[in-house]
C-alpha cells in the first residue's frame, strides 16, 4: 500500500451544544479515492470543512504527510498551499460576479502591488472551463456573471477552479447533487481522472452508484463517527445500500 497522505485520529467538533463530530479516525492514502457515505446531518460536510481549513477541530490529531497540523495555524490558504482543494456543498460562488472572478476567487494571479493579471486570468479560466471541463453553454463567457450559469455549469466552475491549481487532494462534497445525467457523467469523469493523474480525493454523495463508481474505499458515517468501512473489492452497490441501512 502507498503511504498515508492525511491521517485523522479522534477528531471532534461541536457547534455549541451540537456535537457534529465525535472522534473521527480516517486515513487517506496517496492516489486513493475515498467515498464518504452517511445520512443527512451525519457530519460529512463538517469533516470536509475541517480538512479544507474553513472550520477548526476541537480535539484530536491531524497530520499531513506525517507532519502534525496545528488547528490554530490551519486556514483555507494553508490547506491550499499544501495542495488540498475543496469543492463545497454550499454555494461557494459570488452570484453577481463574473465567471473569471469566481474562478480565481481568493487567489488571483497578481503582481507585487496586488494588481490582477486580468487578461491572463480570463484566458486561463475560459481555457479550463471549455477545454478541460467541457462547458459549452451559450452563457459561458469570462465576463458573464455566474447567475447566468446552470447548476451543472456552476459545479463545473467550482471543480475547474479546484483542478486548475494542481491539487494533490481534491475534496468534493455532493458534487453530483441536482445535476442532469450527462453532467453527472462529466463530474464522475473528473473524479476518475484524478485517480489516473495520481491524485487523491474524498468524494461525498448520497447517490451510492456515483460513490461506487469512483471510490476505492467506502466509509460509512453515522452520528459524527465512522461506523464501518468497505473496500471496492468486497463491495457492490447492493452491499453499499445494505451497509448504509444498517448504519442509519
Amino acid at each position: 500500500m502507498s503511504k498515508p497522505l492525511i491521517e485523522l485520529s479522534g477528531i471532534t467538533k461541536s457547534y455549541g451544544p451540537v456535537s457534529a463530530l465525535k472522534g473521527v479516525d480516517l486515513t487517506l492514502y496517496e492516489n486513493e479515492i475515498i467515498g464518504l457515505i452517511g445520512d443527512n446531518g451525519a457530519g460529512k460536510s463538517t469533516l470536509i470543512k475541517i480538512l479544507a481549513g474553513v472550520e477548526r477541530f476541537d480535539s484530536g490529531r491531524m497530520t499531513y504527510l506525517g507532519q502534525d497540523i496545528e488547528p490554530k495555524k490551519y486556514s483555507v490558504s494553508t490547506a491550499r498551499r499544501m495542495g488540498i482543494e475543496t469543492v463545497f456543498q454550499d454555494k461557494s460562488l459570488g452570484e453577481s460576479q463574473s465567471i473569471w472572478r469566481n474562478f480565481f476567487m481568493g487567489r488571483h494571479l497578481h503582481n507585487r502591488l496586488g494588481f490582477i493579471r486580468v487578461a491572463h486570468e480570463k484566458k486561463e479560466a475560459m481555457r479550463v472551463l471549455t477545454d478541460i471541463i467541457g462547458l459549452r453553454g451559450v452563457g459561458v463567457s469570462a465576463n458573464a456573471p455566474v447567475s447566468v450559469l446552470s447548476g451543472g455549469e456552476r459545479q463545473g466552475l467550482a471543480i475547474g477552479r479546484a483542478m486548475y491549481f494542481d491539487a494533490r487532494v481534491v475534496i468534493m462534497d455532493e458534487p453530483t447533487t441536482a445535476l442532469a445525467v450527462k453532467e453527472v457523467e462529466k463530474v464522475l469523469g473528473f473524479a476518475r481522472n484524478l485517480k489516473v493523474q495520481g491524485k487523491s480525493a474524498i468524494f461525498v454523495s448520497h447517490n451510492l452508484y456515483h460513490v461506487y463508481d469512483v471510490a476505492d474505499r467506502f466509509l460509512f458515517f453515522q452520528h459524527g463517527k465512522i461506523r464501518s468501512e468497505l473496500r471496492k473489492e468486497e463491495a457492490t452497490p447492493k452491499i453499499l445500500i445494505d451497509t448504509l441501512m444498517k448504519c442509519s
Binding site: G53, V54, S77, S92, L93, G94, Q97, M105, G106
Partner: peptide, 13 residues
C-alpha cells in the same frame, strides 16, 4: 465577494 456572498468568501480563503 464580501458583499456578494460573505460565507463563500470565507470558504474560499
Amino acid at each position: 465577494f464580501c458583499g456578494d456572498n460573505s460565507s463563500a468568501a470565507q470558504m474560499m480563503g
